[in-house]
Design a binder for these strands. Structure first.
Length: 294
DNA sequence: CACCATGTTCCTTG
DNA sequence: CCAAGGAACATGGT
């Protein structure tokens, strides 16, 4: 479930549940998700430690703990890869087949599950240094984006996936943002005019903010029997009206009509990944902008 | 069986 | 040296 909005919603959900809890024991069923891949080091560092904070940076979960043996706070990271999930469950509950790591918190347990094992738990926080600004934060401005795209010949869609440019956009929201901004995904980044950069900037923020708002309506108690996380990308809010059954406007909609103009949505491959777009809305023609004709 | 999948890293090619 | 493209990672869904 992992792009910026999903991680953000997850962090908000987990933070109050973990705050203050002590890791009594760690059960590692798949050491391959650890970095360094040392069960011993991971266990020694975190066993007995107390959760003091959880936040997000890009697609990373940023955990802070107070180790048992004095010393200062320790920060470590979680990354969900393609299929990773964290959730809190009651001990003794049947565990999913691909539970990779389980943190015993006493009356609760924190489960990290990941069928493909692409996700990682990292004791090293260096990856954060390579991230660009938060798209919803103050550093991400129109001027910054314009400057960052200005010299690049890469397709704009590919550029949006570059985590050192801006952190947290993934394959789904890259397509969604470009559709919303009505920009052709195959355009070289440097071809965008300033008003198009502004539209894209706005679209990125709107798409991510809306996804966070939507995700906040979904129950995340995966482990406790009821809810399932598969609601997240393709489902709909419990109270959503029928005409808005689908939340994503273009992603995974190849061959179906554009919600805006009715043209057939197309799928292409860029950088070995699928891109979805409307050939009519995203033809790169002039578009009325708020300031366009003034 | 074939193809596709929310991500990142590593290797090859040009 | 750099950029671009592809494979690999591992499993499941359609």
């Amino acid at each position: 479930m992992p792009e910026l909005p999903e991680v953000e919603v997850l962090v908000r959900h987990l933070a109050p549940l973990l705050e203050g809890r002590v890791i009594r024991r760690i059960v590692i069923r798949r050491a391959r998700v650890l970095r360094p891949a040392s069960v011993k080091q991971f266990t020694q560092t975190l066993q007995g430690a107390r959760f003091t904070g959880l936040s997000r940076r890009g697609k990373y979960l940023v955990f802070t703990v107070q180790p048992r043996d004095g010393a200062g706070l320790r920060t470590w990271l979680g990354h969900l890869g393609m299929t990773g999930r964290f959730y809190v469950a009651r001990p003794g509950q049947p565990r999913p087949k691909h539970a990779a790591v389980v943190f015993d918190l006493g009356r609760l347990e924190l489960v990290y599950e990941d069928p493909r094992y692409f996700g990682r738990l990292l004791l090293d926080t260096a990856p954060l240094l390579r991230l660009g600004p938060e798209p919803l934060g103050p550093q991400f401005t129109v001027a910054y984006l314009h400057q960052a795209l200005r010299w690049s010949a890469q397709p704009i869609k590919v550029k949006l996936l570059d985590q050192s440019l801006v952190a947290g956009i993934g394959n789904i929201y890259a397509s969604e943002a470009l559709f919303r901004a009505r920009i052709p995904p195959q355009w070289a980044a440097r071809r965008l005019q300033r008003d198009q950069v502004r539209r894209l900037w706005r679209a990125i923020r709107a798409v991510l903010a809306e996804a966070i708002a939507w995700g906040s309506t979904v129950p995340l108690n995966f482990g406790s029997g009821a809810g399932h996380g598969d609601l997240f990308y393709f489902g709909r809010a419990p109270d959503a009206p029928d005409y808005y059954a689908e939340r994503l406007r273009v992603y995974d909609r190849a061959g179906r009509p554009c919600h805006r103009c009715g043209a057939t949505i197309r799928r292409t491959v860029q950088g070995a990944r699928s891109t979805y777009f409307c050939p009519r809305c995203q033809a790169g023609k002039r578009v009325d902008d708020v300031r366009g004709g003034a």
